[in-house]
Every structure is written in structure tokens, then in C-alpha cells.
Design a protein around this nucleic acid. Structure first.
Lengths: 229, 229
DNA sequence: TAATAAATCGAGCGCTCGCTCGATTTTTAT
DNA sequence: ATAAAAATCGAGCGAGCGCTCGATTTATTA
């Protein structure tokens, strides 16, 4: 099965689906009433925000440029958010909820096998970040300029992801599958390997590497480091 | 020997020494003539720039705030650079030249032992990024907003670092010390582990981890993954 | 088709930004 | 002590920013 299909089993990670979820999550702040209009425009706004932000940063993106790229006027934008910061929070929320929901959804058949579970977590995280690449890059690069509450959520979300990995590692250690002294430290080392896929995507693409191939390479590398290769 | 002393054998990575090198590199753009005055002020300017930028980003730092933090006036700043962008380039140049010079300076006794050489590279890179932490965080986080020429240099510098690692890996593979299919890919996986130390320093510090301990943990992890643990 | 509601528009407001430059202070040399 | 040189100052400039709101266009309903 193609990696896209595998991922699709767990959720719809298209731009439109993300826009729909964001609309639902922020219905009270968005003035446009008719959902199909709102979802379509919101998708264009978010697409343009990611495109412009990931080039020079969110701060450097002017709302005038955004309006033009999204096909709206300055005033029109403000039917969809009540301030530039809200736009940032909307995108961030979508990233962390997508990651949290997916990683907690490991199927029955891998939960009992630590090595398979670890491979599943690594592969799914990479496939998700591939499907939502601009979202992930945005969340990673703009993390330092989050408003305080959003920053707290982001840190909590990252800690939750790491805890899932740490649990599988210590479970595997207890069963004698992994040789690992400090599961939390090992989990902390896996995280940047996952992030590197989307943060440095151009570099990997230049070497002709696909998301699947990267996921496989990281899994092998990690499992060998854990003495289960 | 303490890690600071070990590192000190290869160069002076204090703020003042960095300021002196930056002054020399940009003498033509800096109006202040007397070196001891210029180095002292430049050190304060760079220290303040790193402090303010690493909080909310370089773009978000205003030159008025910088002037106050550095103990100068708006006009006074412009004796030390001819524009905000030059300030960014000054700091970036210092980071990449420090990393390039250090990693190329491996002592004789480790060059002949791939495992020892790899450990040396990992440890020294981490110790350097610890000694110059704000510089490294700055270069990493602001990379996307570099002007085109500086961005090219940064990419080239990163590629050079990775090439050094790849060379040691393939050398070790040829000698049967490492089991590794693709040295370039393995080198690409090591880099984010080094970066994670300074990018996520608060998280590691919260867990009571020192630079030495982190370096040792990463070395062990990597060597095991390479079948040399 | 006329009336109502929904969605969009864009000039204008107050503000802060990077940057300049003549005035001023501080240091050095005579 | 005085003149010359070096270093610093800070009010002011034009530009672009996020954001507002009455006017206008588009869609819906009667």
C-alpha cells in the first residue's frame, strides 16, 4: 500500500480538511457564516500564510501581501481572524492536535511488539509531517514567537510526543527487546531525527530521498542504536 | 581536564575574542578607529543582539531596544554597522568560521582511529556550541531570513561540516570499524543530534544534563548505530 | 424583482520601524 | 590650556505596519 493510503486510514490531512477543523475550532471568531464559503477562503488564507511565512518568517509577512496572495482585501481578511496572532494560533493548534491524535492511534497489532510499535511511530510521524509539511515547518520555525499560552501548549504537546516514545522504549527495555539505560534520553534523541525530515527537506530532496526511505533509514539507525537491529 | 580547557586548546571562544575577530573581518565598515574601544562596544552590541534576538527573533528586535540594551544611542550604533542586515551577517560569519576551523583541527592521535575521530568531532562540536550557544542558536533560527549571499555561505558551511563527518564514516567503513551502507545519510542523521543540544537547551537543562554528558550519550548512541558500540 | 442579509472592499488612522545628520560631548595631541 | 580629532547623541524623516469602518458589491429570500 502506498504511504499516502496508509496515512489516510488514520485521518484526512489535506489542506481543506485542516481548514474545516480550524473553522470548527474557531467558529466564534470567524464572521463568515456559510461554512462552504468560509472553509474555501480559510484554506486559501492558510495556504498563503504558510507559503509566505516559510519564506521569510511570520513576522516579516505583511497582511497586505497575505491579502493579495489569498485573493482578498485587507478588510476581508478580518472576517476570518481578529488579529495576526490569531492566525498563528490557528495553524499551531492544527499541527499539535494532528500529531497528538495520530500517534495515540497505533493499531492493536503493533502495540504488543515494542520494535514494531517504535517503527510505526517513527514512520507515521514522518509520513504525517510529509503530508502536512508546511504546517510542521511553520510550527517549528515560529515556535519562539508564539504568545505565551500557545507556547505552553506547544511545549506540552512536544513533551507528550516524547513521552509516547519513552514509554515504548522502556516497555521494550523491560521485555529485553531494547538495550537502553535512559529511555527519556533516547526518546529525546529520536525527536530531532524526525524533525530533520521537514526542517531540512530541501537538502534531503536534493539527495533524492523519499519520506518512506528516510523513515526506514531512521528506524534502522535507531533500532541498531537500541541493540535491536 | 575540564571540557572548557580542552576546547580552549583550539581557540578562544569568549565573547570578546569573537568581537575582535568580527572587528577585523569588517574593519572597513566600522567607523570607530581605536580597536580597544571598538572591540568593547562591539562585544556589548553583539551580546545584546543575541539576547534580544533569541527571545523573539531578529526581525522583532528594534534598533531602539538594541541601542538601550547595548548602552548606546541610535546614531552610535551606526558607527559599528551600516545597516541591520550587516549585524546579522557579522554574527553568522563568526559562527561558521569558528565551526569550520575547529572541526578541521583534529589532533594527530585521533586521525588514525575512526571511532576516536568520530567521538572527537561529536564532542568538540557540542562543546563549541555550548561555549558559543547564543551564536549557534541565532545562526540556526535566523537562517531563513539570511540575505542570499550569507544563506549560500551558511549552506556551504553546513555541507562542509557534514562532509567531514561523512569522510570519517566512510574511512571507518573501509577499515571495517563501522557497518554503514550510506555514509552521507548517516552523517545527515548525526547533524540534528548535535544541533539539538543548543536548539533545545532549556529542555536538556531541565533534565540536569551537561554538555559533556550529552556528548557522551550521543557518541554512544551513534557508535552503537554504526555497529561499533 | 425588490428587499434583506452576507460578504467584501480599500482609503485612512495611529504607530513604530530603520536610518540620517548636524549638534554635542569626550578624548587625544600640541 | 587649547585646538583638533574621535566618538556619541537623539530629534526627525519617509515608509510600511496592523487594524478599522462606512461604503459597496454579491448572494439569498420573499
Amino acid at each position: 500500500m502506498s504511504p499516502e493510503k496508509r496515512l489516510a486510514h488514520y485521518g484526512d490531512y489535506s489542506l481543506e480538511a485542516a481548514a474545516a477543523r480550524i473553522l470548527e475550532r474557531h467558529r466564534d471568531r470567524i464572521r463568515t457564516r456559510k461554512p462552504h464559503v468560509a472553509v474555501a477562503k480559510l484554506a486559501k488564507i492558510i495556504e498563503a500564510t504558510l507559503k509566505l511565512s516559510n519564506r521569510l518568517g511570520f513576522q516579516a509577512m505583511s497582511l497586505r501581501d497575505l491579502a493579495e496572495a489569498a485573493g482578498l482585501s485587507m478588510g476581508g481578511l478580518y472576517s476570518y481572524f481578529d488579529g495576526k496572532e490569531t492566525l498563528l494560533v490557528m495553524i499551531l493548534g492544527e499541527v499539535s492536535s494532528a500529531a497528538e491524535d495520530l500517534l495515540a492511534a497505533a493499531p492493536e497489532e503493533v502495540r504488543d511488539d515494542p520494535a514494531a510499535h517504535l517503527r510505526w511511530l517513527i514512520e507515521m510521524h514522518i509520513l504525517l509531517s510529509e503530508a502536512m509539511q508546511p504546517f510542521f515547518v511553520f510550527a517549528y520555525m515560529e515556535a519562539k514567537s508564539f504568545p505565551a499560552p500557545a507556547r505552553k501548549r506547544a511545549i506540552a504537546s512536544e513533551a507528550a510526543t516524547e513521552a509516547i516514545f519513552a514509554r515504548v522504549l522502556s516497555d521494550g527495555a523491560a521485555r529485553g527487546v531494547f538495550r537502553v539505560d535512559d529511555p527519556h534520553f533516547a526518546a529525546a534523541l529520536i525527536k530531532p531525527l524526525l524533525q530533520d525530515w521537514y526542517v531540512k527537506r530541501p537538502k534531503h530532496a536534493r539527495r533524492g530521498m523519499s519520506a518512506e526511505a528516510y523513515a526506514l533509514g531512521v528506524s534502522d539507525f535507531v533500532l541498531k542504536a537500541l541493540g535491536a537491529g
